[in-house]
Nucleic acid binder design. Structure first.
Lengths: 155, 155
DNA sequence: CTTGAACTTCAAGTAACTAGAAGATGCAGG
DNA sequence: CCTGCATCTTCTAGTTACTTGAAGTTCAAG
């Protein structure tokens, strides 16, 4: 079995969220008040690792504390139905999928740029790359980057 | 052909970035100072739509203004090589791919939860869903959510 | 030439950290 | 038991990236 108790620093290492930030999350109501050692140090159990990882992921994709709080609070409230929690997760999911599409676009933009640059440019001035003609718009697979460094050699 | 000139409000509508935010981006050095009408109103051309869309996407995925500025500034500086811009884009890309993986995890967490909830729970109390046992950890495809709303009916 | 939407600048407010001070605690080795 | 030092505690202040609001100006349709 894995150990049951963690201090704030260990929790931080396990989840990739800084100690100061964990305290801030607690203050913001995203995390429950943990039990304490005699001297006041916070002690967490295993379940907090999962919970905090989930919160971190949500945060990393721009969900507000209000949204995260709403979702995580459901899990301790018997008066609110499971369906309600599911609907919230569902709404969350729609947004995640939208973000996914946007991220794919960004990825394709960057990939296309790096690819074309590898094939066509070899150390010419950056201004010739016309990076902004390609990044941000819809990518057309057919034509590579138009005037990318084709007209100028190294000095 | 599409029209050549846009005012800040139109640019805002086309890119999904608020006017106030566009002005702020300009102030932050992410966008060049645009030309002005006689009365001082900003005028942008078509290329700014692409440029701003790219900036918005980068921003939406947590890149700092410093990172975005670095990347976008290369495109106007002949003294810096194309390879340098490419390397920066490459580094950017690595981070985008990492974010992609994380986003997929989050998506799977939420999908798994919604699926299981649809199959097993039908209006029971949310606390029975044990949402945090599933969200945040590695998802095991085999077992659906364990004690999710199975033990309690509606009052 | 009037009217109203859209623009201008500037200042202040907010969300989510982030860093630093100043001191207390926990634990391992002597 | 004592020392030393990493880790913890609270508190305050600063940073980034917006966001809102005030007060006034400009543009374009009627």
């Amino acid at each position: 079995m894995t150990r049951q108790n963690y201090r704030i620093g260990e929790l931080a290492r396990l989840t990739g969220v800084k100690s100061a930030n964990i305290r801030y999350f607690e203050q913001e109501g995203l995390l429950p008040e943990p039990s304490r050692l005699a001297g006041g140090h916070r002690v967490y159990d295993r379940s907090l690792v999962e919970r905090l990882t989930f919160i971190r992921r949500c945060r990393d994709f721009g969900f507000t504390h209000a949204q995260i709080r709403e979702l995580t609070r459901l899990a301790g409230d018997d008066r609110r139905s499971c369906t309600e929690a599911r609907d919230l997760a569902q709404a969350h999911l729609v947004e995640v999928r939208r973000k996914m599409t946007e991220l794919q676009e960004l990825q394709r933009s960057l990939e296309g740029y790096v690819d074309a640059c590898n094939q066509i440019c070899l150390g010419g001035p950056a201004s010739n790359c016309s990076i902004f003609e390609d990044l941000g718009g819809e990518r057309q697979k057919s034509t590579p980057i138009a005037g990318c460094c084709g007209t100028q050699a190294k000095p």
